[in-house]
Amino acid sequence: MDANKLVTFFEEDLCIFSLRSRKKFSALQEMIRHLAGTGRVSDEHFIMEMLKNRESLGSTGLGKGVAFPHGRSLAIKELTILFARSPGGVDFEALDSKPTRIFFLILAPSDKGADTYLALLSELISLVQKPNKLGELNKVKDYKTLIEILGGNGN
């Protein structure tokens, strides 16, 4: 997947540049509520339950201040990514125990295979490992800049 394809999954109304919640599940709830407000999910409850279960399998906070909560649910219509930035950091029980500031929430429909989101997950993880990308994401405050960081032209 190239950068041009990657940026097509990011939409302006699916970005939170100042996440208020500081605790793990309230942060997830805030992201899901935001998604529900855009009509992308049919039922917040199903998504929250699925994400809680996913976190019990092992934290999706991979460390270095980034988390990739993800999973499949019947309550999601199409592959969806929500970007969120927490200026103060969230206690997300990350693998390195440090606060999480950047979130890529990836949700896929349950009738599609896991491969529908694994490629996306892989691409995003590679991206945040590139020099400077994480620093730039930690400062991002608008959609246009986010798309530029992700490799698009921001238009």
Binding site: D43, F46, E49, M50, N53, L57, S73, L74, A75
Partner: peptide, 10 residues
């Protein structure tokens, strides 16, 4: 039941 299926898929 829907939550159960999501969990079974996981």
């Amino acid at each position: 039941l829907i939550a159960l299926q999501d969990l079974d898929i996981m």
